[in-house]
Design a binder for these strands. Structure first.
Lengths: 136, 136
DNA sequence: CTTGACCCTGTAGTGGCTACAGGGTCCATG
DNA sequence: CATGGACCCTGTAGCCACTACAGGGTCAAG
């Protein structure tokens, strides 16, 4: 059997690709449980912490907010519960992502058209400045 | 000739579609020049403030940062200067928008595939939770 | 025993606002 | 002339999700 050695915060940071400060931050906001401390007052982490932090990081990579992640972690606890609530959170997030993409694409079109009009003259006749300045 | 009446902050907010607090904030960070004050210590704005604030708002709607807007406003001052620097800022911003769209689309694909796998069972066999949890 | 990598707490800063609290001003109505 | 309500003032704190110190303590190798 594998006797797993406890990790200090730097090691946990390395294996999860998280910054040390971010781990402490997750602890402060209650996403990561308060870990045990060594004799020298160092935080010591085990497998459960590693798993939980990995979960958080993956969810963050997918753009979930810490609030959503908190909800997902709570839901994940109760393994008998229906996973519809999980689905709802994920769908809400996807809707948000869809909306952001649409907004950015509108922006992209406007910017591209603005830039396309640049004649590289002087500022007085700059189309970009003109487009931003108030009418007349 | 039109004698333009000075606006107080609320009126300026209404005509530019900005919140009063936002106008004060732009003043604090030096984007809007400090306005004259009335006898009762109210800010009083004229045409130049209106123009400048409109510029800021349009640029914000296009997603430029306040830092970029500051640069654009500086460039707009010197009407003889070549507008290439303006073009550079706009292009950098467009590149940023392009990048954000690409990132969000990658997210969108991942999320959609995750959600598509939901079988609406219980959490123990939830694909979404599984996908987030660490491997085995 | 010293060095340097690591860890601790606490605080402040980021961007771009937003939201108070606790007051002052202005003007129309009674 | 008093009152009420809409407006304005300053200053501070909060939002999100960190990030970056400052000023110290701990630990292990050489």
């Amino acid at each position: 059997m594998v006797v797993e050695k406890p990790l200090n915060i730097g090691a946990l940071a390395r294996v999860t690709g998280t910054k040390v400060e971010t781990i402490r931050w997750y602890e402060r906001v209650g996403l990561l449980p308060v870990p045990a401390r060594s004799a020298g007052n160092y935080r010591t982490y085990g497998e459960p912490h590693l798993g939980r932090l990995s979960f958080i990081r993956r969810a963050r990579d997918l753009g979930f907010s810490l609030e959503q992640i908190r909800a997902l972690l709570d839901l994940a606890e109760d393994r008998e519960r229906s996973c519809d609530a999980v689905d709802v959170i994920a769908r809400e997030h996807l809707d948000e992502v869809d909306r952001k993409i649409a907004d950015l694409q509108a922006l992209q079109r406007e910017l591209a058209s603005l830039i396309g009009q640049c004649r590289h003259g002087n500022v007085a006749e700059c189309r970009i400045i003109e487009a931003l300045a108030p009418p007349k």
